[in-house]
Amino acid sequence: MKTYYNPEDLAKFGNMGEDAPEMWKKFMEYYGQVFAAGALTEKEKALIAFAVAHAVQCPYCIDSYTQTLLQMGVNQEQMIEAVHVAAAIRGGATLAHGMQAKNVIKNLEL
């Protein structure tokens, strides 16, 4: 293995169904239902997926949902705003956890 991440593996995602076909089938049904239009549009769901993909830093998902969004008529400016949403929540969550440190300090300091 020369690299942990290989772009060709994205197209082989379906191979994950080889060893646990029943669970794979259920996952794919669930996945399909999640991304179908409902209370949110398909485009809104794809933008959420795109932002989450950046937050969890999945290169496969970033590649896939960038292409999906281009094909949905979303431009670069709109996508980068979505990345900032992910960045703001990650940054905000980091800062919010500072409260834990402050609480520990408050409990221990004179």
Binding site: T41, Q71, G73, N75
Partner: peptide, 19 residues
């Protein structure tokens, strides 16, 4: 007329019309 700005397919005509 909309055509994609690169090597990808166009979006659904009705949803893009709304935008």
């Amino acid at each position: 007329v909309y055509n994609p700005g690169g090597a990808f397919l166009p979006p659904g005509q009705s949803s893009l019309t709304v935008d």
